[in-house]
Lab assay of single mutants.
Amino acid sequence: DVEPGKFYKGVVTRIEKYGAFINLNEQVRGLLRPRDMISLRAENLNVGDEIIVQAIDVRPEKREIDFKYIP
């Protein structure tokens, strides 16, 4: 289970104008929005990159997770 405030290692699987999709594993995926990329620009991300993200909002009923990148 993903808990708000905890840090996780994930892999960038898709990049859109509104953010990057980060997979923690095959069943868990969330969104890293540009406003939550402190000191990281979306254009510096590539599909396949491994990054550490913090879960900031977890909505299990919608199967949605928002992440924040903190260097």
Rank of each mutant, 00 (worst) to 15 (best):
M37H: 04
V47W: 03
S39P: 15
L32A: 02
D49H: 04
V2E: 02
Q54L: 15
R14S: 11
A55G: 02
F67E: 03
I22R: 00
G19N: 03
T13F: 05
G10D: 01
F7P: 01
K68T: 06
K68D: 03
I52W: 15
R59Q: 03
R35T: 09
R33H: 06
I22H: 00
E64F: 13
E26L: 11
G30Q: 03
G5R: 04
V53N: 00
I52H: 05
G19A: 06
G19D: 02
Y8T: 01
N25M: 06
R59C: 08
K6R: 12
G30V: 09
L45Q: 00
V11N: 02
N46G: 09
I38L: 10
D49W: 06
D1H: 14
N44G: 13
K6V: 08
G5H: 05
R63D: 10
Q27A: 12
R29K: 09
D36R: 06
E50G: 05
I70M: 09
I51S: 00
A20F: 12
V53I: 07
R63L: 10
E3F: 12
Q54E: 05
R14V: 06
Q27P: 04
P34H: 14
I52S: 03
V12S: 00
D36S: 06
P60G: 08
P4K: 15
L24D: 01
R41E: 09
I70K: 05
G48E: 01
R41M: 11
E64W: 14
L24T: 01
D66T: 12
T13Y: 07
P60V: 11
E43V: 12
R35N: 08
I56S: 05
L32W: 05
R14D: 02
L24P: 01
G5F: 07
R29L: 09
N23S: 15
S39G: 15
I65H: 04
R41F: 10
E43W: 13
F67V: 04
D36Q: 07
I52C: 15
T13D: 03
D57L: 11
E26P: 14
V47M: 04
R59M: 04
A42T: 14
L40D: 04
V53L: 07
K17C: 10
V11I: 14
K68A: 15
E3H: 12
L32T: 02
I65V: 09
I38A: 12
D57H: 15
K6C: 13
G5V: 03
R63E: 09
G48M: 02
V47C: 05
G19C: 10
N46Y: 10
P71V: 09
Q54C: 12
K68F: 08
I70L: 10
G48R: 01
E61W: 08
D36L: 07
K17V: 11
R33L: 09
I52E: 04
Q54M: 15
V28R: 03
V12I: 14
I38V: 12
A42P: 15
P34G: 12
G48F: 02
V11G: 00
Y8S: 00
D36T: 04
N46S: 14
Y18D: 06
I70F: 11
N23D: 10
R33D: 03
V12R: 00
D36N: 14
K17F: 11
R41N: 10
N23R: 13
R14T: 05
M37G: 06
I22V: 11
V58E: 02
E16L: 11
Y69K: 03
G48Q: 01
N25A: 08
P34K: 15
K62Q: 10
A42R: 12
L45H: 04
K68L: 10
K68Y: 07
G5A: 03
E16P: 01
G19S: 04
R35M: 08
K9T: 08
K6A: 07
R29W: 14
P34D: 10
F21V: 12
E43S: 13
R59F: 04
L45M: 07
I15E: 00
E26H: 13
D49Y: 06
K6Y: 07
E16Q: 06
Y8A: 00
F67K: 02
P34E: 11
E16A: 13
V58G: 04
E43M: 13
V12D: 00
K62D: 07
S39Y: 14
V28M: 08
G19K: 07
E3Y: 11
G30T: 03
R29V: 13
Q27D: 12
E64C: 12
V28G: 04
I52D: 02
G10F: 06
E61D: 14
N25V: 07
I56E: 03
S39E: 12
V47Y: 02
V12T: 01
R35P: 05
N25G: 10
K9P: 02
F21G: 01
I51H: 00
E26I: 13
I65F: 07
G19V: 08
E26Y: 12
R35V: 09
I22T: 00
D66Y: 15
Q54D: 01
E3R: 13
E43Y: 12
I51W: 01
D49S: 05
L40I: 12
K9R: 13
P60T: 09
D66G: 07
L40P: 04
N46E: 11
I65Y: 09
F7E: 02
I22Y: 01
R14K: 10
R33A: 06
A20K: 01
M37L: 08
N44M: 14
G10M: 05
G30N: 02
Q54H: 04
A55R: 02
G30L: 08
G30K: 02
R63P: 06
L40Y: 05
N25H: 07
N46V: 12
N23I: 10
I52M: 09
L40A: 06
R63F: 11
Y18P: 02
G10A: 11
V28P: 02
V53G: 00
Y69P: 03
L32N: 02
R35G: 10
D57T: 13
Q27E: 12
E3A: 09
R29S: 12
D66H: 11
K68C: 11
V2C: 07
E16C: 13
F7G: 01
R63H: 12
G5P: 03
D57R: 15
E16D: 12
T13I: 08
L45S: 00
F7M: 08
D1N: 14
I51A: 00
